[in-house]
Design a binder for these strands. Structure first.
Lengths: 210, 210
DNA sequence: CACAACAAAATTTTCGAAAATTTATGTTTA
DNA sequence: TAAACATAAATTTTCGAAAATTTTGTTGTG
């Protein structure tokens, strides 16, 4: 792995987890000190992240962490619903035994991580579960879009997840989703997925208003 | 505009027009001579193009122009159908007077370019027309995806367009599409759009087989 | 006091050389 | 002969300084 790849991963994680807050200018000298590398790999990583809309840049004025807003969140969620419902439909149509096994495994791992409560691994298992559902869709484009939209929406989830008191059986939603997918219910499973994402959006919108 | 932006535009155009053929290695020294700039802006451009799947790279082995294949073409076309039919639906729902005027103007300009027959401008007007249809969708994500998929599919069209003899009233399809969109027929217009893209795919597949 | 005009500082962008890695070439050995 | 290995060449990747640009601060002017 090259340094540019490392820079990409580090910056991406720090932006997604909010450690680099929205709107913050990304000064090259500061990044150089933080990640201990030269300008070149950092700039290459920033150019990639710009294509994924995690950072924005103005010519000759450098890069900043992409800002957040409620309208942008809904834009990302609705795009994600479009892409992932179709990808799930295709996975249900095309998925083989290995796909089914992957879904079962990811759901189980997610349950374990949720019980343990470590936010770091929980976040990773959550992403892996949602990926496992659509991974058999057969379209690299849809998987690519889903990955970018997942990163974009994750930025809204993380800061809110902390003080979330209202009860919600997320693991139950996940289980129902997995069951519908494995039973090849090509209408119900995408509907559950869409509702799942929109419910998360409502939850975030409610907390951001408060 | 920075040199990196120039490099991005030049490389993108040369790849889309097939002047840099699929699979060709993109040696930095050769690019440096071709575009008359240093390594840094070229590498930044290549990193962006990698995010758009126009080039692919292996760690420490540099970049190559992304290869073409019939399965990949259909993948891109079907993803494009998904994204643009939804974006068109939204445009029909939300588009205002300026949107309608833009569609009419783009259709007219496309007709003029087609009559004149300059492939360079025709290509640009064609892309502008299809963009005009969906530009009022209100989703930056969908427009972003559409732009990338448009670039990906254009690569298949260009080489085939030359020796295309079988008759097809493309401008008629475009006119019908615009009419349905402007009449706010939210079912028919997306269907016409999907058929339009798939027909182009069939045409290309037929010629690639021969 | 507002506001240009200019200079200084900070920052981004670009370059070319150095370092790291891969690929090609030739030589030895079993 | 063919595999294994060393060596050289080609190429990518990275660095740090130089160039270009923007931002900040200062001074002079109406």
């Amino acid at each position: 792995m090259t340094l540019a790849d490392t820079a990409y991963d580090s910056l991406r994680r720090d932006i997604m987890r909010g450690h680099l807050p929205p709107g913050q200018p990304l000064r090259l000298e500061a990044l150089r000190a933080r990640y201990d590398m030269g300008f070149s790999p950092l700039r290459e990583a920033l150019n990639r992240l710009q294509s994924e809309r995690l950072v924005v840049s103005a010519s000759m004025k450098g890069f900043i962490v992409a800002p957040l807003s409620l309208p942008e969140m809904w834009e990302a969620i609705e795009a994600r619903v479009l892409v992932e419902t179709e990808a799930l439909r295709l996975s249900i149509l095309r998925g083989d035994d290995a796909w089914e096994a992957g879904v079962v495994a990811a759901l189980h791992a997610l349950g374990l991580a949720a019980a343990r409560g470590e936010p770091e691994t929980l976040e990773a298992r959550h992403a892996e579960f949602h990926l496992s559902l659509i991974v058999a869709c057969g379209s690299g484009w849809l998987l690519d879009f889903a990955r970018k939209l997942s990163a974009a929406t994750e930025r809204y989830r993380a800061p809110v997840l902390a003080g979330d008191t209202a009860p919600r059986d997320v693991q139950g939603e996940h289980a129902a989703l997995a069951e519908a997918a494995l039973a090849r219910r090509a209408e119900e499973a995408p509907a559950l997925l869409a509702a799942h994402y929109r419910r998360t959006g409502e939850r975030i919108a409610a907390r951001m208003a408060a």
